[in-house]
């Protein structure tokens, strides 16, 4: 249908971003293809040490499934997106395909090995998340392709993660957010992935911050160095949610806090977190 209708056609998944954008006339599609009537597009499968999410799996379905208990960072994300009404409708596939700079899933999933399966009339292809999201609102999807599945490798044992967002109220996008997934060996961090949200045009993989954590013992000195590197990696813009300086400071503090929680979880502790509110 997409190839027949051309560029003026848009896909409607949960609609929690597209419909507001249409109200503002930022999006004005001539044709809307409602995916909600396609059966079998909402599922969570666990096979071959990977989780496979159907594109129309709602955030609330992920929040309420028993699988995220094993990957706490996924639960932090699913349970913290907007408010309950939005989580009941919004989808993981829609969130990635929209590639909003403030979207939560892209931040969290870029700390895990994530692949996006894209289906078009010539068949299906698999794209790494880092290649999938190319810029704000821009993905590797061709106009006649859609997201058919999101595949996330289950992190190894001894790995722990956390996602923290700072929000002014439940329904709004975060002011800034940080996702950390790390593997511990005693008190030393063996491997780390750190991503920052809402402080750039896409989720930012903070490579220098990861390097400052990898192979180091978890100490005040390490945390300070990592937070400093995360602040340097952020590229925020001043807007109604806060000034660029404020967001930069905030994201450093979030990274530091997320690491502390991720370390405890990597040791097998059960730590509940919720997003922070202004």
């Amino acid at each position: 249908m997409l190839s027949q209708l051309g560029d003026d056609a848009k896909l409607l998944a949960g609609g929690q971003s597209l419909i507001p954008l249409m109200k503002l006339r930022f999006a004005n599609p001539a044709h809307l293809i409602d995916l909600n009537f396609i059966a079998g597009t909402s599922y969570i499968h666990n096979a071959n040490s990977a989780l496979r999410f159907g594109p129309l799996t709602r955030h609330a379905e992920i929040e309420n499934s028993d699988i995220p208990a094993r990957i706490p960072i996924l639960y932090d994300c699913a349970a913290g997106i907007a408010d309950v009404q939005v989580r009941n409708r919004g989808t993981i596939g829609g969130s990635l395909a929209e590639a909003d700079p403030s979207g939560d899933w892209a931040v969290v999933l870029s700390t895990l090995a994530t692949q996006v399966r894209c289906l078009g009339k010539n068949g299906e292809r698999t794209v790494h998340l880092k290649d999938f999201i190319q810029d704000a609102y821009t993905t590797a999807l061709a106009h006649d392709e859609l997201v058919s599945e999101v595949v996330v490798d289950i992190p190894a044992k001894g790995s722990g993660g956390a996602y923290l967002a700072f929000k002014r109220a439940a329904p709004v996008y975060p002011t800034a957010s940080a996702a950390v997934q790390l593997t511990m060996d005693g008190n030393v961090c063996k491997d780390a992935a750190i991503a920052l949200g809402c402080v750039g045009l896409t989720a930012i993989k903070a490579k220098d911050a990861e390097a400052a954590l990898r192979g180091r013992p978890i100490s005040e000195r390490t945390l300070s160095a990592v937070a400093e590197a995360a602040r340097a990696a952020a590229d925020p813009q001043s807007d109604m949610r806060g000034s660029a300086d404020y967001k930069r400071t905030l994201v450093g503090a979030l990274v530091r806090r997320a690491i502390t929680i991720a370390v405890r979880r990597a040791r097998g502790e059960h730590v509940e977190v919720s997003h922070l509110y202004a």
Binding site: G15, K23, D34, A60, D83, V84, Q85, V86, A169
Partner: peptide, 22 residues
């Protein structure tokens, strides 16, 4: 703009924003 919840209805028993769906 999907912030206030005044339009909330239940769809198959689940609360959703009726102003943000067709």
């Amino acid at each position: 703009d999907s912030s206030c919840g005044a339009c909330t209805v239940q769809v198959d028993g689940t609360p959703m924003l009726s102003c943000t769906m067709l």
